[in-house]
Design a protein around this nucleic acid. Sequence first.
DNA 1: CAAGCTATTGCATACGTATGCAATATGCAA
DNA 2: TTGCATATTGCATACGTATGCAATAGCTTG
Lengths: 355, 355
Amino acid sequence: MDGGVKKTGVTSSQVAQRAGVSQSAVSRSFTPGASISPETRAKVLAAAKELGYRPNAIARSLITNRSRIVAVVMAYLDNLFYPDVLEQLGRLLAKEDYRLLLFTGLAGGDSDPVFDQLMQYRVDGIVLASTSLSSELSEECAAAGIPVVLFNRTTERDAVSSVTTHNREGGRRVAEYLLAGGHRRFGYIAGLESSSTNRDRLAGYREVLGEAGHKDILVEVGNYDRAGAQAAARKLLSRPDRPDALFVANDHMAVAVMDVARYELGLSVPEDISIVGYDDVGPAQWDAYGVTSMSQPHRRMVEATVEVLMSQISSGEIAAEHRVFSGELIVRTSARLPPSGVVEVEGRKVFRPER
Amino acid sequence: MDGGVKKTGVTSSQVAQRAGVSQSAVSRSFTPGASISPETRAKVLAAAKELGYRPNAIARSLITNRSRIVAVVMAYLDNLFYPDVLEQLGRLLAKEDYRLLLFTGLAGGDSDPVFDQLMQYRVDGIVLASTSLSSELSEECAAAGIPVVLFNRTTERDAVSSVTTHNREGGRRVAEYLLAGGHRRFGYIAGLESSSTNRDRLAGYREVLGEAGHKDILVEVGNYDRAGAQAAARKLLSRPDRPDALFVANDHMAVAVMDVARYELGLSVPEDISIVGYDDVGPAQWDAYGVTSMSQPHRRMVEATVEVLMSQISSGEIAAEHRVFSGELIVRTSARLPPSGVVEVEGRKVFRPER
DNA sequence: CAAGCTATTGCATACGTATGCAATATGCAA
DNA sequence: TTGCATATTGCATACGTATGCAATAGCTTG
């Protein structure tokens, strides 16, 4: 056992003694903007360095009533969209000097234990990017006076802040694209039926198709899950009246669907069937898939999330704020090209129909 | 600065008053195994429920000197292997009643700020699954008396606990497979050259190939990064003496390499070139890629990680412990099949050469 | 030179909980 | 009945920090 420092944390009082000042002086030396002379501060910092002192954030939280911790609830991470979001959340929160307490891999539906944790650790804010338990949890937290931001989803009553994209518009755009491509039979593979995101995308899709006289859309549910999406795809694509245009509620499912179409059913994409996804996330961009997809500007969405959170934390106001972004329909190879409307913007092909 | 609204914050004293008991009694009611009569406890719990009381974990940490928080450092999440690990870590830690403080998306190389955070929050344990800053960080933490587990990597001196697989063995197995498949020219796309994982895999690969008389292996560095891997692949695969067998240090890079081979260079896999990856992670298993890959049993690796951590936390002993697991070479379609040695185990084809 | 002001410092206390210790209540045996 | 062991309970304090308040030092202004 060489001189390894034991679990005995160095305290501000020890530093104070060493530096020949009061504990208050030590505290003030580590508090930006506090009243402390440069000389005293220098003495304190020197002593602190010698002893390896770091302020105890736990004790600090107790007195300031601020933990500088933001909780992020993200039920599953197998859709790369979420790890992407998580990584940038970590980056931006760190920049604001906040820590990220992650709740993931939780047993479905059971929101109470999570809520307990959040309350017990007195987190300063919460990002809910998970799916099922959002509505219950968000109401509880908002009621407890903790700022909450729903990421990529909303609740019925707009009582809780949210950051989303125009999902209904997105659904409409996809329909327009597929119509322009001359497709005839339309299908949809849903995410979680209960999720706002899914409902809005489908609603927009239905609207435009309905206006064009296509009322009978084949719908199967994939639950935002790879296996679920594949099961849905098998059902939908083995029908005699198989659709020639398929909108899949997100890219994570879209690539799964493409695998089924190509390798299980021997279909060609997009010759036999056009597939459009949502999110414009990692694998969708890979050459093996090349998914035509509605993008969600997740960088800006995360920025907005942190902005809203920080503003609510510092103001104490938790009036609900809703930030809604717009995406683009990124054109790749998984769906037949329409004769017009595809333009090149910043090196990417996007669909912008002339009205 | 911030005229914030005070949070509710029900305290144990308030509950005590309501229940007509002392604060101590409240505390004991929430401490398993404490000395408290069933009647008193019932009264307390009733009062607590009425007031919506939850013990303040911050205050509790201050006195118990245990935060029940484990820090996880994971620099990047775009390789799905890590989100998978993260999700299960979250699950298992929750089961042990620990919280997960995530450090991700950090600016490269700069380990000091992270270390500061860890110390300030008095985390009870640390999982380092990140890459570059592991060695420096781990030494510092171990020196500070905090249990550390390196996940999927080790350091030079074995002073810090680790959970890994037999990477050298894995590299050997890959070489055996490719040799058995009758390949002639061998290449390797490296991860981070400094990482132990990468070095060991390459070493094993080299050993076996060397024994078979193949000394000149073409190596390019991909840095565990998609873009890097693709650049490396372009270099390696446009050479006139292009290899017909390529070992890529992980699946995340392997699928990127396959995209380059197929869609940029027009090569057929495995007819023109065989590709073998490592990890057996998500996309590698998808039909569009079907990567033949050395698996890492990440479920069991995460279990072991949590076990080691819990044991070190509860015992106070931080003697380094090294858990090493074995994987299988999962046979799919990205590499030519050898005439023998491929057997079916639990529904999966694996390579087990007869010796 | 005096008076007044500002900058700096230390003292004392508070944050919400856990826990050693002493005090009390309860139960049992004699 | 008494005495003793045990189960509960409350009191007081400690954890490590931040901060209002009063005291002091240093400086400016007249």
